[in-house]
């Protein structure tokens, strides 16, 4: 049943210009990052530094701290907007699939979109870098690591964002709250409590080795898992109880 439900969620994403978002948002992050990189190249690249990793510190600044948390919140809101707008909830919820299955399917499709976004970002980062003539060897392992860790960090965030989007009927309100909480990550990322702050976790998880990053992998993964589980349990439970008015 879950497979069918995920397929259905996929169908609903048609004709929403999602592919454009998927291509453009990471690309903008890359371009802003490379622009910064070439402007401050003298300061950024020291002896023994890999150009790619230094360029990444700039790209991930825009992407991890701003674009990704906002984008994942947008995916959640979009997925719920399709239901709120035309009364989809009340249609779906009088059919056999349970509310837990419906919620889970939405979660899966959103996480899938985030994963695709991550892949697009890395691909665009490499292609743009090559076109701009970066010379050093591509740090494949590092890029793979930030892709995965960034994705894991966003899992916890999505659990919170989907809970919010499924409870608030308006399309804009959850996005606005999300943007505000994202901006708070600027402060959080530099502070000790940033490690516990879901909106700061993606940027910490995706940062380069010589930046402020996650304090320890095990610690990060545990915090992440706890937040993810808690938010998912609360999200599913409140969705299950919710009156569809």
């Amino acid at each position: 049943m879950i497979k069918t439900m995920v397929f259905i969620e996929f169908m609903k994403l048609r004709r929403q210009w999602l592919w454009a978002v998927l291509i453009i948002v990471p690309l903008v992050s890359c371009l802003l990052g490379y622009n910064n990189f070439f402007t401050y190249q003298d300061i950024l690249v020291q002896i023994d530094d890999n150009e790619w990793i230094e360029a990444w510190t700039q790209a991930s600044l825009f992407y991890g701290m701003i674009m990704l948390p906002i984008l994942s919140g947008f995916y959640c809101s979009l997925s719920c907007r399709n239901e709120n707008f035309g009364g989809g909830w009340k249609q779906m919820l009088v059919l056999p699939p349970s509310r837990v299955e419906i919620y889970t399917a939405k979660m899966i499709i959103i996480l899938f979109l985030v994963l695709v976004t991550q892949l697009v970002l890395i691909t665009e980062f490499i292609i743009t870098g090559l076109l701009l003539g970066l010379q050093d060897s591509i740090p494949w392992f590092f890029l793979f690591k930030v892709l995965v860790l960034g994705f894991l960090a966003v899992c916890a965030l999505v659990a919170i964002q989907l809970w919010m989007a499924s409870q608030i009927k308006s399309f804009v309100t959850p996005i606005a709250i999300n943007v505000a909480l994202t901006l708070l990550a600027f402060i959080a990322a530099g502070a000790e409590w940033g490690n516990y702050y879901p909106w700061a976790q993606p940027t910490l998880a995706m940062s380069a080795p010589d930046e402020v990053g996650i304090s320890s992998l095990l610690f990060f993964l545990s915090i992440n898992l706890v937040i993810f589980s808690l938010a998912t349990i609360i999200g599913v439970a409140s969705f299950d109880k919710k009156d569809i008015n």
């Binding site: 609903k12 048609r14 035309g86 009364g87 989809g88 009340k90 249609q91």
Partner: peptide
């Protein structure tokens, strides 16, 4: 089979 309140639909489909 149910039709509750206004009809439910996905307008972009």
């Amino acid at each position: 089979g149910a039709l509750v309140e206004s009809p439910s639909y996905y307008g972009h489909l």
